[in-house]
Nucleic acid binder design. Structure first.
Lengths: 194, 194
DNA sequence: GTTAAAATTGAACAATCGTTCAAATATCTT
DNA sequence: AAGATATTTGAACGATTGTTCAATTTTAAC
């Protein structure tokens, strides 16, 4: 089997992402990271530069996978709005048990970091905006399909959706099983403003 | 001037709260704390037991002040719903510039911590539930005043409001000035489900 | 004013932090 | 197979972490 450098790097970043996602930037130690990704400090620093460098790459990878998951939802469903709903259910409900952390890694990062780590903070913000733009694209498509009234502003609906997701995921972590997540996700799409 | 032990303790906890609120639990060091509250390690540990003990007291104080602020809004306004709106604007908008951190300290804590700090995590969750219950009380009062339809379930509306606030505050930190916060808060109350 | 009790101090502790780098190992080139 | 290049290793670094505690100072009691 031929060596594929990119593949290895992706695997490593995946594992790092899961650890960062679970514990956050500050609570994750390099030694913890070394164990999980099975690399020695020298290699890590030669490859990623610093703890921040690896975290930044983790953020980018997390975002890329989010966008991919959304596109996948689109391909698996018949309508753009259905795709959005499926995606939201996936990240709000399934993630509660399956993922390293019920929270969105990007929102968690925006919540955790200050200007002391401006680069990382800005990267997380940028990623959240990328996802919101993806939502907007699907909403525009939904408008073209007649699923959403054309007098609505797609950007505003995307923003609304983003806010609902962020709020819901914090709520889910707060209330655990008690929260009727499925119903709450349904409500987002059956009531205002969709 | 007579010494008032409780007052001193409150002042200290206030300062600690602001630091924890700004930097989060893990990124706040005891030495950082020592400088801000102007106490030496021995005194801190004699008084609060540990870094976690002080954080827990900070969480409780933050929550108590939140409840007080909400009651204050109620006394300053004519209707329960107006009080809620004022409170939301206060914490979502004013806090962006004035407070140590635009985020809600409780939501930020729920986002940051894992079971490694179960006590603190549970305390933050409990506090969020307390605030939600306060929302619910005001909504019930609003129903009695005829501001909110009585066929709505107050608990659900309170939950909805909690989700909007959490989502909005993350959104505000992500988008900074670009976010039309005032309009977004208005939307919460003018549209569904109020 | 003297003594007992309580509170405060700050040096010091072991543990862990992120990071470095000379040495060892693996890979590529010819 | 031999030499050049790139990668990996892991011990070690100084800094910082949360915490302790004997010594000191302040407060309270009589």
């Amino acid at each position: 089997m031929r060596k594929n450098a990119k593949f290895d790097r992706d695997q490593v970043v995946d594992k790092a992402t899961n650890l960062y996602w679970e514990k956050g930037f500050h609570a994750t130690s390099m030694r913890n990271l070394q164990d999980v990704i099975d690399m020695r400090p020298g290699s890590i620093y030669a490859t990623f530069g610093s703890k921040e460098g690896l975290f930044k790459e983790a953020l980018m990878r997390y975002t890329q996978q989010g966008v991919t998951a959304l596109h996948l939802c689109r391909n698996e469903t018949q309508s753009p709005l259905e795709a959005l709903k499926r995606f939201v259910k996936e990240i709000v409900i399934d993630t509660q048990t399956a993922a390293p952390n019920g929270m969105c890694m990007l929102a968690k990062t925006v919540a955790e970091l200050t200007d002391s780590n401006r680069d990382l903070l800005e990267e997380a913000k940028r990623s959240l905006k990328i996802l919101e733009t993806e939502f907007e694209k699907l909403i525009i498509e939904a408008q073209e399909h007649g699923e959403v009234a054309k007098d609505k502003v797609a950007g505003q609906l995307a923003r609304h959706l983003q806010i609902q997701i962020s709020g819901l995921r914090i709520y889910a972590k707060t209330y655990g099983d008690e929260a009727p997540l499925d119903q709450l996700v349904e409500d987002i799409f059956t009531h205002y403003p969709f």
